[in-house]
Structures are given as C-alpha cells and as structure tokens.
Design a binder for these strands. Structure first.
Length: 589
RNA sequence: GGGGGUGUAGCUCAGUUGGUUAGAGCGCUGGCCUGUCAAGCCAGAGGUCGCGGGUUCGAGCCCCGUCACUCCCGCCA
C-alpha cells in the first residue's frame, strides 16, 4: 500500500475519504482530467493510490487558480489544500474518493509534460505497439498499474507461503551452458573463451536438482527463464517461473504442498480454491477432452463409438478400426441446425488439425437427420449412435475415425472451437492436476523419441525396463497444474540414480560420450548420494494473467516484447559496435 | 517457416465503381463559462493514406513486392 511516508506529500490521493474531511493535506502526483469552468477549475490528481478531485476557486487562492489555468494533462504538481465533503448533489459514486474533494490553497508545478500520445485513463483502445513504445505512460494507467500490483501480491504471497514451509530462495546462474533437448537457447558469446558461448537458462532445472544433492532439501526461486522460440499471446522470450524443488518426497507430497500454497495465493487475491484439486490422468484427459490441459468448465466430452461401428459397412470407419484406430465423437448441443458452410468450416478445422475428414450427423430441430455419411449406417447403428452420444433433436454429432491419438487431438481442437461458437460461458478458476504423463513421445519428423517433460523425469518403477523395449508405454511421475485450459505449472519427480539417468539419455538418442560431455556433471552429482527429489515450476505470468482476467501475458509484464521479440521503447535488439563484436570474437554477415 | 487479420490526423476509426480540396469522434491550441467529473459552447491547427514499385489521363481504393503490429499452426523438454 502506497503511503505518505518518506515523501513530499502528507497524504496519498486515494487515501482521502470522509474520515479525512477537514484535514489540511499536501498531495503530489499527475494532472489527469481538467474541467475548466472559467471561474472554477476541477482537476483530477492521480498518484499510484488513486485519483482525487481537486477544486480551484479563486476565493480560496488566486495564485493556485492561475496555476490550475496553466497546467495540462500529465504535468507533475504538488498541491496544498483542505479536504471537504462535496456539496449536496455533486457526489460521484463512480469514484472511490467521490464523496470528498480538496479545496486547493497552493499549487506548485514540479514538472511539465508533453501532450501524451494516448490518453492516460482506464479503458482506452490503443494499439499495443503505441502503448509499448511509451510503456512508462501506459503504466500510469490504473489498469496496467493494477496488474503489476496484482503480480506483486501473488509473488509476495508465494514467498511467504514457501518461506513458512521451510523453503529457502537460492539464486542460480543466468550464464550457463547450452544443453541439448528442449527449446532453442539464447546464447551469449564469451570474451575470455574465444568461440565459446554461454546459454541463458530455459529454467533452473539442473541447478535446483544440484541444490538437492547439496542438501538444501527445500528450494524455491522466482526465476527468469529464456527460450528463443516464437511468441504467442501467452509466451514471451523471457518469462518468470516460480521454481520449487523438494527432497525426500513422493508425488503426493508435492501436489499437496502446491495445493496449499495455491490456495493461499488465491485467497490473497480474493478467490477460493477448494482443495484437494481434482486429479486426472493424462490418459483420461486425452480420452475425455482431447487435451493434456483440459478446460473442464464445460462438457462436450469425447465419446468412443468404436463399439457402435464395430461391424460398420462404411469403409472409412471399418478401415480405421481394422488398422487399430478408433471412431470418436463429440456432440455439439444446439448445433443441429447449423448451415452446411458452418459445418464445412468445422470439417476444415478437423483436416487442418490432422484428421482425414469429419463425419457428421445433424439432428435438426424439427426431427430430420442430415448427414453425408448416414446412408452407410444401419438403423441399429444409428440408434446406437444416438444412445451413445446422447444426441437429441437440435444437436450435431461430429465424428473422427483415426488412430486414437489423432482422433483425440482433433476432437480436442474441435471441442474448444465448438465451445466458442456455441457461446458457452466459461468463468471462474477451473483448476486441476493432470498426472501420469507418458515419459516419451515419438518425434516423427526427426524419427526419434523425445522427452515429454524433460530428460530428468523419473519413470514409473514398474516401467523402467520398458525404456529400451517399448518407450511409448513408459509412464512417468510427471504432473501439470491446469487452470482454465491453460498449463500454468508442471513438474516431475527426478531421476536420482545415475545409471537410470544415463539409460534415459541414451533412449533420447545421445551417445555415451555426448552424455558424459554435456551431462557428466549431473550424472556424477547423482552418484554422490543424491536424495529422492522432485519439484514443480509455475508460470507466474500466465497465472497472473488468468487472475487479472487478461488475454495476454503482456498485460502483466512491465516491459513486454512484441511478437517479433523486439522492445519498441528501447529498440532492443540492436546492432553492436565493431569493437564489441571483436571483443567477443564474432563476425556478422 | 506457413496461414488469417490490421496499417488513413496524436488516438480510435469512416472513406462508395478508381475521379474535384481525404472526413468524423476524442485529444490538442485559442476564446467564453463558478459545481463539473466523457463538463459545455464557439473557433482553429493538425495528413509521407506503413514503405517501394507498377497499371491508369487519374490510385487511400487495383496489381506486385516489402515492413510493422496482432492471432493461430509449426516450434515452445
């Protein structure tokens, strides 16, 4: 809370209310709106705490009145005056300070201001580029400042909650080494080691594990992370993780700790989080929602129709089933009378998402059945389809016949689109765990197995031997925290056995000498009595974005970057001098 | 790397089939005004129509290229 200590002011603007009526105050801040009535001037004074109306009456001070005539928006002023109740009929209930005003007796201009490129007030609709170019002006706007305050409260509460549970904050290096796997690294040339480079951390993953080997037992850090990948509304090249690691724990310990901490965070900012949170296996999430970060605030769940069409004459269905695939469906309640072009758009979305096409049956409001494929269905199959999907008149059944993973993913994309188009309202903070992720996923493009979370994830003990023989079947002690269909955190138990760690790295296609070269320090550390350990990292930006009700993490970052990774204010990135390049032994084309 | 959207006054936008001097609201400047809070009234200033090229008698509008912003796919352990 901003207060008047250590400052030129006696009070903050937002602190004035009926209780301070009669007090003589000195305020400092920025000039907002000015309403000049000729013989009387109203001026909104804004500081971080809020806005208060200051009234300039020549009868109170002729000199102050002259100043008020001259000041313009965003000038910085110091105002002396007396708080008083507003006259009958001039109260402003829309303003927190709307019951009072300050009659100004002396006014000092501390600094002048150019006319700002956009108006400094809530609710403006200005291009983000303009706002970013003068971000310091944007930050003066109450809603931007409020987002930063919210972010501060969340991180402060995190610190407090973790500190009271015996965690200590430890800083880890920003200049680290590049390791294979994961995102593209931001790299930093080394002056003292010609031709060699540091990498900025994608996360403090290995260092926090080494802190566990170091016996710290409970660590956390509000850590900046860097990934040189393309941006999105919820992705910036640098972002902040609440990074946590614990020793001597099982999955349940970490999830319970996180739930307790999350409940305290949410409480801090005025929301209830009922714990324990629901837990859903990755397999169930994919099967029911077609996503590993399901938004469970609405239904439209996926239904398996493989049984219904087990002996289908329809070649597309029969073919999918005979090659080990499935027929799955989603019932769009209320879409039965959609136009053909609207359904065609869904079909295109399905194709773009990897399906060969969308088979659909529309049950129109007046009891008709429209479908390009129903002619291939028997009456019994049609009836079974109705039963299995629960489709009624006015509903649209969308079906995908494909490999299970493809069918799930396509319908998962479709499900979200349908929710949008059907106007399904999604409010609140829908929070759950998705657990038991597969250890590996097959990268068809590179024809190799990749880590699903990261290469340090502990596989299920009973699946260890499958690492070599059937990697796709290996499940792992990995978990994601999902809120409103967004991954806001994720973690794993870690491998603490050096042999197992080497086996996993080999599975990922690394040669032994490469493992020794790039991960030798880790394997060696594990060989010196590494405790069982695990942890989690929360995306602070995304969490605060959701809490702020924003659509973009740029809204909750003080100085964000554009989608091309540039900062329009400082013009970063920029060229450097020939001398700087020479120092770090680089030549640029 | 690919796809969609956007780019006209400081800001948000309109701009017809290609046709005279490119408009509006807000903001800004000046004037009037003692209870406004989106103050009001009057007057005024303000334009590289993102940039480059092309078609045309003539381009904000059509074509080609390019840049920027934004959303999405790829990518993001």
């Amino acid at each position: 809370m901003l207060d008047a200590r250590y400052s030129m002011r006696s009070h903050t603007a937002g602190s004035l209310n009926k209780a301070t009526v009669g007090e003589t105050v000195r305020l400092t801040g920025w000039v907002g709106k000015r309403r000049d009535h000729g013989g009387l001037i109203f001026l909104d004074l804004r500081d971080r705490s809020g806005i208060v109306q200051c009234t300039f009456d020549p009868d109170a001070s002729g000199a102050a009145f002259v100043v008020a005539e001259q000041v313009r928006p965003e000038w910085v002023v110091m105002l002396d005056g007396v708080v008083r109740e507003r006259p009958e009929g001039t109260l402003n209930p829309a303003m927190p300070t709307g019951e009072i005003e300050v009659i100004i007796t002396a006014a000092t201009v501390l600094n002048r201001s150019e006319t700002p490129p956009f108006e400094i007030e809530a609710g403006i609709d200005t291009d983000e580029l303009t706002r970013m170019k003068w971000r310091y002006l944007d930050i003066r706007r109450p809603e931007v400042a409020a987002a930063l305050v919210l972010r501060d409260r969340v991180s402060q509460r995190f610190r407090k909650s973790l500190e009271t549970r015996g965690f200590i904050e430890v800083e880890t290096p920003i200049l680290g080494r590049s390791t294979p796997e994961g995102a593209r690294d931001f790299i930093v040339p080394s002056r003292m080691s010609p031709g060699k480079f540091y990498a900025l951390p994608q996360s403090p993953q290995l260092f926090k594990q080494l802190l566990m080997v170091g016996g710290i037992e409970r660590y956390y850090q509000i850590a900046r992370c860097f990934r040189d990948e393309d941006l999105r509304a919820d992705r910036q090249p640098e972002f902040t993780q609440i990074d946590i690691e614990m020793s001597f724990v099982e999955v349940n310990d970490i999830l319970q700790m996180m739930e307790d901490v999350m409940r305290e965070i949410m409480h801090e900012v005025g929301h209830d989080l009922p714990v324990p949170l629901p837990r859903m296996t990755w397999h169930d999430a994919m099967d029911r929602f077609g996503s590993d970060r399901p938004d469970t605030r609405f239904g439209l769940e996926l239904v398996d129709l493989s049984g219904v069409f087990a002996s289908s004459e329809f070649k597309v269905f029969a073919g999918a089933l005979s090659s080990g695939g499935v027929i799955k469906a989603i019932t769009a309640t209320g879409a039965g009378d959609w136009s053909r072009s609207r359904i065609d758009a869904l079909n295109q979305l399905a194709i773009d998402s990897g399906a060969k096409g969308l088979a659909w049956v529309a049950f129109t409001g007046d009891g008709e059945v429209k479908s390009p494929v129903s002619k291939f269905f028997s009456a019994e199959e049609m009836e079974a389809l109705r039963l299995a999907t629960g489709a009624k008149a006015g509903d649209l059944v969308c079906m995908v016949a494909d490999a299970r993973a493809t069918a799930n993913e396509v319908l998962g994309v479709l499900r979200l689109r349908l929710a949008d188009e059907l106007g399904i309202e999604r409010t609140g903070f829908d929070t759950l765990w998705v657990v038991d992720f597969p250890m590996f996923k097959y990268d068809a493009g590179e024809d190799r197995w990749a880590a699903n979370h990261h290469p340090f994830t502990l596989p299920f003990a009973e699946h260890e031997e499958l690492v070599e023989t059937d990697p796709g079947a290996v499940l792992s002690y990995a978990y994601d925290l999902v809120m409103n269909g967004l991954e806001i955190g994720g973690g794993t138990l870690r491998i603490h056995n050096p042999e197992l760690q080497s086996r996993v790295l080999r599975r990922l296609g690394l040669e032994q000498d490469e493992i020794t070269e790039k991960f030798g320090f880790l394997i060696e550390a594990l060989s010196f009595g590494a405790p069982p350990h695990g942890g989690i990292a929360l995306g602070l930006d995304r969490l605060v974005m959701l809490l702020a009700g924003s659509q973009s993490i740029r809204d909750v970052i003080a100085f964000p970057k554009t989608s091309s990774g540039a900062d329009p204010m400082t013009q970063a990135p920029d060229v450097v001098s020939a001398r700087q390049l020479k120092d770090v032994h680089l030549r640029v084309d």
